[in-house]
Design a binder for these strands. Structure first.
Lengths: 143, 143
DNA sequence: TATTGTTATACTCTATAACTATA
DNA sequence: TATAGTTATAGAGTATAACAATA
């Protein structure tokens, strides 16, 4: 139990509390689930992917991802395609509407988070946040 | 629509995605709701507080906070006390068990977040995260 | 027999609406 | 009439369990 560890506990506690508030706030402002936007962005970057892979990447169960994809498909934002190599797998890809949505969403995010970043943070603070983001990313993927 | 704003949109998008994954991860590892721990911590710092004030601070509806407090009370972690000055208000305070729980929780958080911080981040990265936390805090409280 | 995905169902957390009691 | 809190109910998001189809 080193001094460093105490600091880590403190950090972890504060981070947890802040995350809760930020996410509730985001959910309230943002109409659609965090996962939906996240999946669209991932498909845009990674191209067509299987449901199972998406589930693993987003850290949800395959069944939940099935539901998410069903929602996105109903909205016409993604399309399914049978994997020619493996009849069990279904490849998911972004439709044109999905790409448009992704683009529009970038504007909609101006909603408050981008605006809060622009208004409440100084230039140097924004740089600091940008540098801290990859750390959060790594924490979220930590084994 | 300045260059800075484009950067903000980018930041906002990435932050949103990362938050989603982190919170799902936290929920999976951590047994109880983020709000519960957050409320206990707040009571510990601020002393007895009304349900409405807690709701405002945590950015949930008073009805939701009523439920949260009912849960915490059922678990013996908080107690109610009538406000001597205003018969409508109920003051909530931490019980001894609540303080113990809060203390234990600090150890439990070693679960993975603190551990991830300790193992996956370097000393300088931890310092960076610590500096970025107040920024996230401010964003979560942005009007 | 193992893996991919689906359907059915339940749980958790928060929201809205309607109500009671005090100011 | 306005405010603090409660009860009842619904909704969103994700989980577990059981199943079908393919490997």
């Amino acid at each position: 139990m080193t001094v460093t560890q105490d600091v880590d506990l403190e950090l972890a506690g504060e981070l947890r509390v802040v995350l809760g508030r930020l996410v509730r706030r985001l959910r309230a402002e943002h109409s659609f689930p965090l996962t939906h936007g996240s999946v669209l962005g991932r498909l845009d970057r990674a191209g067509s992917t299987s449901i199972g892979d998406l589930a693993t990447a987003e850290r949800v169960r395959p069944q939940s991802m099935t539901q998410t994809i069903a929602d996105l498909e109903a909205a016409g934002l993604v399309a399914r395609r049978a994997d020619p190599a493996d009849g069990r797998r279904t490849l998911i890809e972004l439709t044109e509407a999905g790409q448009r949505k992704l683009f529009e969403d970038r504007a909609r995010r101006e909603g408050w988070l981008a605006q809060a970043i622009a208004e409440d943070l100084s230039e140097s603070e924004r740089r600091l946040l940008a540098r801290a983001l990859p750390l959060l990313e790594r924490l979220s993927e930590s084994a």
